[in-house]
Every structure is written in structure tokens, then in C-alpha cells.
Design a protein around this nucleic acid. Structure first.
Length: 490
RNA sequence: CGGGGUGUAGCGCAGUUGGCUAGCGCGCCACGUUCGGGACGUGGAGGCCGAAGGUUCGAGUCCUUUCACCCCGACCA
């Protein structure tokens, strides 16, 4: 399957153009590098939001909202943080326009210059920590476990639909803790939460582990991440959870009185996933017929398509399908009856396949007389005729099967494309084909940088394994405590 | 910011060494025939040929300027 996509589409931007725009997930907007998320695509995002939000709440987090604009000076308070984001910030310098005194249109009113420029948040650590200073005085105020659903802007040089848009939607959690251990535990808890969500809901197998120092979030002491493998063999960072140490607390002077009455800086974390997850969904599961949605994220679980000749037949079959729809809805499924009369059934079949709807039920005159329905599953494209009375147990089971099957397929793909390699020459050759490469590395940033320069492969993460086997760095031959995951990444 | 490319109907494109009324496919509208895997016929609507200037009897086509977008790099979730 992967091969077909690789051969058919040189890269995924073509894949997006062919698939996503046609399937009304998104289109390029006139605004540089931004995206319009159309209703069907947004419905998927809402499912992602709902699933994550429930998990956040279950682990004691609450939602809050902080301003879009950040005073420029805030951003400069944490040294590494500025360094990391300064080059990609949109900056507000004025607050008013005026009629062009020299002709048509509007110009920026030069008198309306802001005393201090505002940055459109590329991430909210700074403004949040500036706020937390006032919230946190005592150990009794801790922990603070806030999440924010928001949009952020990063003025990247090159954008790519879903994976790197100028503006994107995400969730960012920002927590404050009394101890290092507690903050570290929170960091781990969240990355595990992300991994569970990816696996269970998105049917996306992921690796978990810390980033190397050079791949860390600016300002973080440790960055844990989840990495998934796309069907073209490239890795995609799907979520990150950062242990920030006391860096932001010190930068924004957030101290609390501990039980002994002494002042201490708080320990903090931040974590997030974005609309990039939708890119992951598309690139991990799509086939040559279009999107394949895991049922847990599908805005529509079952589409009902009538097959008929003439108005009378149409009316009676649609009535019949309405009763089927009611039965399935009673089981908690989202059902769509496609009773459009201006397109034919074959057209509808293809269209819902492009949109990735997990299950299709078609009913024609033959089924009406036999008391059957035709059930087609999107993941395998298999069709079968089943008696009408069985649907109540058959469809929910099929939905579960599909969810599992999509995950199994993705896992199998990843396993088949994960390699242990010891020779650098072999690595250079095989990296061209894509996949995850488990290799030994001497732990230095220099070696990491050289390998990146020579092969475009980066260390995606250092896997957490129970039984690390030492070896020799494939590049320098120096000792290595364990294998790390190399890949070319988006 | 470097290197390449493209701007012609809603979308995708063709348009010859400058030539007459600017074309094709898809989509859209109307009518009819169809309808178990992206139907077909007939008719119809839809264009300052990205913008400005120039050359010419005549410019979608040639020249100059400019704008926009796309792809490949540097930057990145």
C-alpha cells in the first residue's frame, strides 16, 4: 500500500491536493500559509478535541484562556525561548488604519504606533507564566494544571498543509508544581496520555521517548515526544511534553512559600498537540481511494445509500433506510442517509470512500425483497450481504473491527519499516527508503549534526527500553549505551 | 533570501512564426433517457487572457516594469 502511494504521488503535498481539497477537508486560503478547515475536516478536529479534553479532565486538568497578544518584552525573558521563537513571530506594531491621504484604500496610521510591540503568540509560556506569578504564592496553590485550546502563529519560511501552517489550532497545557519529581511525573503522564490517545483513538502506533538536547523545545530541560511513521517512510512528531525545570519560574519570578515557609521557585511543564494530528491521520491511514478514518474519529460512522429506479422506489427505500438509521443511532452510531437524487449511487460510493466513512450500507430493490443489506467496510473495501435483522449486532462489531484493523495495519507497517542498522554505509543507503532506524550513537551533538547534514536524518527520540543494549556508535565507533531512533522527518 | 516554474471561465488546461468572433475537459443550469461502482444526449449560462506601460494596422501571443501563487533549499510542531 505504501509503495503505491509513493509511486503514485511524489510527495504528500500532491496527496493533499488530490485528496484533501477534493474531500473538502481543507483548502489553501488567500492568507499566507494558513488553512481553511472545512466543516467535514473540522468535525474530525472536534472529535480529537473531545477525546483529548476528556482525558485531560480525567487527570485533573482544567481549561483556561490567555490572550493572543504577548508584549514583546515577555518573550525575551527566557533566553533560550527567545532564541527559538524570535525568528518566526508575527508582530503587531500599530492599532489603527486610516484613509490613504494620497489616494485610494487604507494605510497604517503612523500616529497609532504601539509603544511596545505585541507578538502574536507562537506559544503561550511567557504570558501564562507572567499570569501564574500572581496565582501562586503558597504550596497550597499548587499544583496548577491548566490547559488552553487556542490558535498560535509561527511565521515559518515554508508551510505545508496541516503539518506546518502559519496559523494552527492546538491545545497547550501549562502546569506548575512544588517539586521537580512531581513536574517530571506530569511530563510523563501527559506523553503517555498522548500515546494512548494516538493508539486507541487515532489508531496510530507511536514511539515514546525523550528528544536529544538539540531537538528539545526552546527553554525545556527535557522534551518527551511521540513519533509516528507515515506511509511514505517519514517520521512525524505527533505530540510533545516538556519538563521546563525552573526556567520559566525564574524568568518570570514565580516563587511559592513551602511548608517550612521558605521561598522556592516552582517547577513546570508544558505540552501540546495540534492540527498536525490531522495530517498524521491522513498520511498514516489513507489509501489510493482516499481517506481512511478510524471509527473513533469519524464524523459519520455509517452512510446509507439507496439504490433505486424511479420515484416510488426511491421513496420506499428511503423510508426503509430511515428505520435502519434510527436503529443504528439507537446504538450510539452517527448515521448519514444520502438520499440525494442528483447523483447516482456509484458516485456516492466513491465520494464517501474519499471521505473515509468507515461503513457503508447500500439497499436496493433486491435487498428489499430478500430482507438484506449490503455492508461495505472502508478499511478493506470488502462487501458482504447480511440479513437485515443482524445489523444491530453486526455493525457495532464491525466498527470495532475496523478500528482495530486500522491500528494493526499501521503497526504492521511500522514494524516492517523499523530496522536495526550498525553500518553507517548501510544506513546512508537505506535511509533513502524511509523508515525508523535503530542505531547506536555516541551521544554527542556533533555526531548528531554530522549525520543530519550527510543524510537529512535526525534522532527522533531515545526509546525507553527496559533492557538497553550497549554498542558502538555507527558513525564514530565510540561507545553507546543504547540504540536511538533515526529517521527523516516532516 | 537563493534556484526553478506558473498566471487564460468555479476547477484543470490548450492556444502555432502576432491575424479576424478566445477554445477544450470537468463542474453549473434546463429538458429527456438512465440508475446494484464515479451515466448519456441535446441545448444553455459563464472571460478586462494577473496588473501597468510600450511596439504594431492588429497583442492571450513580442518588449519593459510590477504583482501574486506554486515547487526545491535555509527555518520548524
Amino acid at each position: 500500500m505504501a509503495k503505491e502511494i509513493k509511486n503514485r504521488d511524489e510527495n504528500y503535498s500532491e496527496w493533499y491536493n488530490n485528496l484533501v481539497i477534493k474531500s473538502e477537508l481543507a483548502e489553501n486560503s488567500a492568507v499566507r500559509g494558513c488553512m481553511v478547515i472545512k466543516p467535514y475536516g473540522y468535525a474530525i478536529w472536534e472529535k480529537i478535541q473531545a477525546g483529548l479534553d476528556r482525558r485531560f479532565k480525567e487527570t485533573g486538568h482544567v481549561n483556561a484562556y490567555f490572550p493572543l497578544f504577548i508584549p514583546k518584552s515577555f518573550l525575551s525573558k527566557e533566553a533560550e525561548h527567545v532564541e527559538g521563537f524570535a525568528k518566526e513571530c508575527a508582530v503587531v506594531t500599530h492599532y489603527r488604519l486610516m484613509a490613504n491621504p494620497e489616494g485610494k484604500g487604507l494605510v497604517v496610521d503612523p500616529d497609532a504606533r504601539l509603544e511596545e510591540e505585541l507578538v502574536v503568540r507562537p506559544t503561550s509560556e511567557t504570558i501564562i507564566w507572567n499570569t501564574y506569578r500572581n496565582w501562586i504564592k503558597s504550596y497550597r496553590d499548587l499544583p496548577v494544571l491548566c490547559n488552553q485550546w487556542a490558535n498560535v502563529v509561527r511565521w515559518e519560511m515554508r508551510t505545508r498543509l496541516f503539518l506546518r501552517t502559519t496559523e494552527f489550532l492546538w491545545q497547550e497545557g501549562h502546569t506548575a508544581h512544588a517539586t521537580r519529581e512531581e513536574a517530571m511525573e506530569e511530563t510523563r503522564k501527559i506523553v503517555n496520555l498522548y500515546a494512548d490517545f494516538a493508539r486507541e483513538v487515532m489508531a496510530l502506533p507511536v514511539w515514546i521517548g525523550p528528544k536529544t538536547a538539540s531537538e528539545r523545545f526552546p527553554g525545556a530541560v527535557e522534551t518527551l515526544c511521540i513519533e509516528a511513521l507515515m506511509q511514505d517512510g517519514k517520521a512525524l512528531q505527533a505530540g510533545t511534553s516538556h519538563f521546563l525545570g525552573q526556567n520559566f519560574a525564574k524568568a518570570f519570578d514565580v516563587q511559592f512559600a513551602n511548608k517550612e515557609g521558605r521561598l522556592e521557585y516552582v517547577w513546570s511543564t508544558s505540552w501540546g498537540v495540534s492540527t498536525r494530528l490531522m495530517g498524521a491521520l491522513i498520511m498514516a491511514h489513507s489509501d489510493n481511494h482516499g481517506l481512511v478514518l478510524p471509527p473513533a474519529l469519524a464524523p459519520i460512522h455509517v452512510v446509507l445509500v439507496p439504490i433505486y429506479k424511479g420515484e416510488d422506489e426511491r421513496t420506499s427505500i428511503c423510508e426503509h433506510l430511515k428505520t435502519i438509521s434510527t436503529r443504528l443511532q439507537a446504538l450510539g452510531l452517527t448515521v448519514k442517509l444520502d438520499d440525494r437524487d442528483n447523483v447516482r449511487s456509484g458516485f456516492k460510493f466513491s465520494e464517501w470512500e474519499v471521505k473515509g466513512v468507515p461503513v457503508r450500507i447500500a439497499v436496493g430493490p433486491r435487498d428489499m425483497s430478500l430482507g438484506t443489506v449490503e455492508v461495505a467496510r472502508r478499511d478493506t473495501l470488502e462487501k458482504q450481504i447480511i440479513p437485515l435483522e443482524r445489523i444491530d449486532e453486526f455493525i457495532p462489531r464491525l466498527i470495532k473491527d475496523i478500528q482495530q484493523n486500522i491500528y494493526d495495519k499501521a503497526l504492521d507497517f511500522r514494524n516492517r519499516n523499523t530496522f536495526e542498522i550498525d553500518s553507517y554505509d548501510e544506513f546512508r543507503e537505506r535511509i533513502e527508503e524511509g523508515g525508523f532506524f535503530l542505531c547506536h550513537w555516541d551521544g554527542t551533538a556533533e555526531t548528531e549534526a554530522k549525520i543530519k547534514e550527510e543524510t537529512k536524518a535526525t534522532i527522533r527520540l531515545i526509546p525507553e527500553c527496559e533492557d538497553p543494549r550497549p554498542g558502538k556508535c555507527m558513525y564514530t565507533g565510540k561507545p553507546s549505551p543504547q540504540r536511538v531512533v533515526f529517521a527523516r522527518a516532516y
